[in-house]
Design a binder for these strands. Structure first.
Lengths: 228, 228
DNA sequence: GCGATGCTTCGGTTACGATCGAAGTATGAA
DNA sequence: TTCATACTTCGATCGTAACCGAAGCATCGC
């Protein structure tokens, strides 16, 4: 007389309105912080925190700690498909909205994140490096390929030097405006430095935004094309 | 600032353990009565009744009243897929069992239901008629085709006579042992009558079971093959 | 070091809904 | 008709979990 309880567990997780709103907001594929998700759910951060812990324990969410933020995403492809199939079933009734992100366009386009490039351009750069085979995305990590090492040498970056530091060469960093990964690590730092050195871009005094010159813009877009 | 509430509603419906057990039991595709579902859920019939009403209102279940029973099934293909995708997601954890049905083998094989054939043979007959194109299953209803009319004439059933009565020619009737549909209506009655007339089968005195003779059995199985 | 921010944990309140007993309705059988 | 079965509705109880205020960590920026 024993039953299959797990379907009830999953259902109950999704069944709370606040949690459902959070999950729906995450189907956009972008990572959101606990505070943002609290807003989405219409609850306080304390309550959101307990909800998020339950969702994570239930295998629906994954979190990624970054500084003092915690970025939450749907756990995996399967979780996303489950949520979407439920939204599909509920079609004909209520809808849902998104909630973009950032404020200043300049910050959104390109800015500094510790020591590397973030924003639209940062995301674009990593996407392009992966697409060209310069970087392998293995699971959550990033690895420079032999081809990538050669490509970088062509634009004046000697990876050998970077390897000597004990800091990781490539690290993936979650972008707070794009909510997708960009390149961090010593290589990310080196790339941004090279852009600044070449005069393609400069830091602004008061803000974190990076201003690309017209020529720098052209070079950057040529070097890191997006085809998709 | 408005959200998409329905996913939470669906989740909450599935999220209750008793309801989840009922839904899981119904993924077998067979219809179950409220009392049986109460047993499945480990609750009393009163509680089950309210649960079933909610599930029906939520679009997950459909019910079919038959005599003093109410047979519940998953509402449709979409509902079944949703439940199964949730069970798939919850895979690796709890399982579920089935709960067959009937008692006496003779009743299970063939019995009378008002005036037509029920049980394994009744279900088999309808399946075969549909497979051969004699009957079209359109939605919940059944319709005799031209081919079917000719086929029936060959075995001595004149459909013209049956049409003259105001009783529906074909009706689908839910089978309490097989939990699948068999053929009722005036055609169902006529078919059973012809079996009895031919001496293929006879009613038993004390029970509702129908006893097929060895020869009748052979003829019936030849006439209504199952290929799948 | 300091204060500010982002998030979690703790404690206590509150509300919702699952549950069942009892009574009511519908159908079938005798 | 009367009784039995299958199910629903009503009413009341009770447990669980959502919720928030306050306090506790952790991290960042200075």
């Amino acid at each position: 007389m024993k039953e299959g309880p797990d379907i009830a567990q999953i259902g109950a997780l999704i069944g709370d309105p606040a949690r459902a709103n959070m999950l729906a907001a995450l189907t956009g594929g972008r990572a959101l912080t606990a505070t943002e998700l609290a807003g989405v759910g219409g609850i306080t951060v304390q309550t959101a925190s307990t909800h998020l812990a339950k969702l994570e324990a239930g295998g629906l969410l994954a979190q990624r700690k970054q500084g003092r933020h915690r970025y939450f995403t749907l756990a995996d492809e399967a979780a996303a498909r489950l949520i979407e199939s439920m939204m599909g079933f509920a079609a004909g009734r209520g809808h849902l909205r998104h909630q973009p992100g950032p404020k200043e366009p300049a910050l959104r386009k390109a800015r500094i994140c510790y020591d590397h490039l973030a924003g639209d351009y940062g995301v674009r750069m990593l996407d392009s490096l992966i697409a060209s085979g310069a970087i392998d995305a293995v699971g959550d990590g990033l690895a420079l390929t032999e081809k990538g090492e050669n490509d970088l040498k062509c634009i004046g970056i000697d990876v050998g030097d970077l390897r000597s530091s004990r800091r990781p060469l490539c690290r993936s960093c979650l972008d707070w405006s794009e909510r997708r990964a960009h390149l961090a690590g010593s290589l990310g730092k080196a790339l941004l430095s090279s852009f600044l050195d070449k005069g393609w871009a400069r830091r602004t005094a008061e803000s974190r935004s990076i201003m690309f010159s017209p020529e720098g813009d052209r070079q950057f877009l040529r070097l890191f094309p997006v085809d998709a």
